[in-house]
Design a protein around this nucleic acid. Sequence first.
DNA 1: ACCTAAGCGAGACGGTACGTCTCGTCTTGCG
DNA 2: CGCAAGACGAGACGTACCGTCTCGCTTAGGT
Lengths: 204, 204, 204, 204
Amino acid sequence: MSQDSTDAAPRPGAARKSIGAKRNPASADAIRKAAAEILEKDGYARFSIEAVARRAHAGKPTIYRWWPSKAALLVDIYHRQKQGMPDPDTGRLADDLAIFLEGLLRLWRETPSGAIFRSIIAEAQSDETAAEALRAYLDERIAHSSQMIRRAQARGEIASGIDPASAMDLVISLAWCRLLTGRLDMETAAVKAAVSLFVESWRA
Amino acid sequence: MSQDSTDAAPRPGAARKSIGAKRNPASADAIRKAAAEILEKDGYARFSIEAVARRAHAGKPTIYRWWPSKAALLVDIYHRQKQGMPDPDTGRLADDLAIFLEGLLRLWRETPSGAIFRSIIAEAQSDETAAEALRAYLDERIAHSSQMIRRAQARGEIASGIDPASAMDLVISLAWCRLLTGRLDMETAAVKAAVSLFVESWRA
Amino acid sequence: MSQDSTDAAPRPGAARKSIGAKRNPASADAIRKAAAEILEKDGYARFSIEAVARRAHAGKPTIYRWWPSKAALLVDIYHRQKQGMPDPDTGRLADDLAIFLEGLLRLWRETPSGAIFRSIIAEAQSDETAAEALRAYLDERIAHSSQMIRRAQARGEIASGIDPASAMDLVISLAWCRLLTGRLDMETAAVKAAVSLFVESWRA
Amino acid sequence: MSQDSTDAAPRPGAARKSIGAKRNPASADAIRKAAAEILEKDGYARFSIEAVARRAHAGKPTIYRWWPSKAALLVDIYHRQKQGMPDPDTGRLADDLAIFLEGLLRLWRETPSGAIFRSIIAEAQSDETAAEALRAYLDERIAHSSQMIRRAQARGEIASGIDPASAMDLVISLAWCRLLTGRLDMETAAVKAAVSLFVESWRA
DNA sequence: ACCTAAGCGAGACGGTACGTCTCGTCTTGCG
DNA sequence: CGCAAGACGAGACGTACCGTCTCGCTTAGGT
């Protein structure tokens, strides 16, 4: 829509109006939708509150009322998009991690969530609230994903002395770095190699 | 200087003038200095070509003449600040990597270069030229640092089948992720643990 | 104010804000006032949209929103300043014209409107929109002022074959040329002489 | 040449060099030529010392060395172009003035000198040196052209009480105003009418 | 025959202003 | 009170010229 004089999405019918003295969920949805579409289409560079308001046929204050910053909106969108991530439990850590890692890379590569997450990271470098949100999010993801490692430890597959969070950190760091440098197209073989590299070293 | 109506640095004497039809290194230095100071003091959020020009007592066109973009200026400053990085060759890969990694984290933690590099990564997420520069820089650093691994392979310390660049990628990814999430305060023990984790898995 | 580091006018109280989704007349007034003051104080050479914005404590886009060009702003100011111009109807054409011409020259000489009009003419030489505005303005003024001549024709004071607009053109040209060459100090006698020169030749 | 990446004129051969410790007339000519071409092609709006230097393959200081200001360059060019103006002496003042006026309007209409003179007038509104030069030029032209009127007075064609300079002023003002408002296409009949209007009123 | 002095093209310098963009805040008027 | 709309002050963007300065050269003219 960059070449369009108006970047507004086509109105799906009559103009949306206030529904009285309470939050209008249709507006919130329209804003989230518009934000996601802009990120997908034009990337983070063209993402601005102004552009979102334009596309969503929403007033800027409406956005600021509900999301205090650009980062908050980004995090909100990311959370809602990141469904369907595999949570494998094959009984073999190397397979679990390979499935997890390949799924994450594919998700970032094939859905807008990659662009969105890149944007969040970028935003976090100059916006402290975004940085805080990102740190919290990362902690939560590591805590969750390190279950795979804990299960492997319970099975006696790897040494019990390994710190699951630190170990998972390594795997996730790899994914992040790939995302941030635009090298998400890691072949399955390379993923497997990297993963087994980790797993081998963790053996008892 | 944000509280000052003029963000200009104090003039160190007479005004700097042109030195003829060739580049004035004093101007370039003043610009780089001003840019670094702004990043250090006010952070990336306040970093703008306009602010740099003001602080350096330089014209904006002078900056654009020599650095085509904000990213180019950032990369330039980063390059110059990142001198004195250790390039260890102890004869033992785990030690080499630990020294390298700890040195990198300390540099980022204790000098402005950490903030600068974060800014570059952030910029790269919305500016394609910055992304390109970052990719090229990363390639160069990996190529250089992976010498440590190649030397270990030559010594027979680790398997010759390991791809040095991919291996180094893992180490650098770890550092990046720490930088971007504000967790640079990795203890020496943790560094050693992470590094030996890698090295163990690479053994023949 | 040229010697001041900030050319801003003193703020008359609290900062001026938006008054909602409609034009704020206080802003428009402040802009016109600042523009007039700059022209009066520093002349057309120092007149710039940037300077006006600075002095009026207004954003540049606010100016561009309402006045598409420097010329439009100049014309607007000129219009508002040029009130109280005599529109004589003494029953004797020579007297009418003398009063009109002397009034015009005095207005230009003694109020800022002379400097402003000079600026408009200058601007019109390199800006087509200004040229258009000037042409339209001149047409309107000639149409209006030539009423004096039409009245004289109706009275039978001068030949009916005279084209009122062309005749008025001569009188106004004289004033313009005086303005542009800084020779506004025409004595009453000289004005009368020039005018009667015209009127004599138009007699039946 | 506005669409050309370089607005430079094609070099007529080898590069022009210094001819030692004296002014190089070839440079001066190239500068004047380039200036005239820019005015003719792109108008006063695109006329800048920078553009002239570019087109003339000359250094900016070379221009500033010989012409202290934009206005000085403009006046120089105008002087050289304004050759071949008729200086009629038919024995009948109305014819003399008609020939003079029509010639002046045609010259301005059909040669670049019109655009150049408009530029000088515009420049004079914000540049005092240009204003001075313009005033001096106007005086000289009036002094010269009013010879026509003096001759008519000597012949007894018009009253001897008329001030030749003031009278000529009227004629020239008419031309100026036409130039500045882009109404140079005055028909011969209209010129004759305006002129005889003057002459009639000057009769004894 | 050398040397100096000036002119030359080129282009970098610190600046100012341009016209556009987005920021986050504010207010209106409708529902 | 929420909403769409949009004006507001602010200020960065990247570009065009300004007028000044210095470079490295070329050549003429004085010694």
